[in-house]
Design a protein around this nucleic acid. Structure first.
Lengths: 147, 147
DNA sequence: ATAACTTGTAACCACTTGAATTACATGTTA
DNA sequence: TAACATGTAATTCAAGTGGTTACAAGTTAT
């Protein structure tokens, strides 16, 4: 299994809101860029709204950024779209045998180790902002046009 | 979505092979400690064998460690049990709209960023050995018995 | 007010994966 | 040969993901 594409779609949406900030970014418009359907976009923008990253209201066309680009990290998006953010990244088998020394201690032994790894991941995501992504997109687009 | 419990079960198995190295660790015995069924244990020990972490042969009862405890990192186990190790940890939506600047550059823009995060995770896992886990299990078991 | 448009959601569906389970072929040993 | 262990295929069940349709509710223009 892998981490849901909601994450990359969320990054896509936020980047698009910046790059197309002159236009009206309806769920339909965004869906065409992402290449999916509007309902899914609305579901994700809803998550981004809950996280305070975008402004979007019923009946009013378009989403807008609710924070500065440089104030939105990939970790913010990661948490925003991760429905199961209460669940840990690493699954641990439950009900190991308490009659066995390994069984009765394995969970508490590896949980902190998993946390360290997960925190390392989150730290890396927290070090990158949507502004960085947008700059990268613009840069790559220039490069692409010069070839 | 989260990372398969095969990972934690794999760690469990390797730890058990060490702690119960005086005994014969059949899939049935291991299954009782993990609290699952023998077929699943055999599937995972098969993966650990493919990765060169354990010795196990058809017809011969029990698995044994194939490497020094201190030479087996959590990353080794992670890769060993990750059937989809060729798949990336982060899913990226495909076929974004090439007519859109964001759509045609989002993938190449975020892939390296995701790689950095994934490498941070793997680095953390690579820094911990099964020996560390076993020591932790033994330590916690002592503590538990003193309460 | 009404029409046209948008967002918010619920309800499906198809697909994939995980884990549990059963069954049996194959290999080993007493 | 009997008893037991591993290897593996097949099945089942549950859950998550992404796609889709449908429609209620909010907004705006006329």
């Amino acid at each position: 299994m892998s981490i849901s594409t909601r994450f990359s779609v969320g990054i896509h949406i936020l980047s698009l809101l910046e790059i197309n900030k002159e236009g009206v970014n309806t769920s339909d418009y965004i869906a065409k860029s992402v290449n999916t359907n509007p309902a899914l976009i609305r579901k994700i923008t809803g998550m981004l709204k809950t996280a305070g990253l975008v402004n979007v209201r019923p009946g009013i066309a378009g989403s807008t950024l609710a924070k500065e680009l440089s104030d939105i990290t990939l970790l913010d998006v990661y948490h925003a779209v991760n429905v199961t953010h209460d669940k840990e990244l690493f699954g641990i088998h439950d009900n190991p045998n308490p009659a066995c020394p390994v069984g009765r201690n394995i969970q508490s032994a590896i949980e902190p180790l998993f946390s360290v790894a997960e925190l390392a991941l989150e730290k890396a995501l927290g070090a990158v902002t949507i502004e960085d992504v947008v700059k990268e997109i613009i840069e790559k687009d220039k490069q692409g046009k010069n070839t």
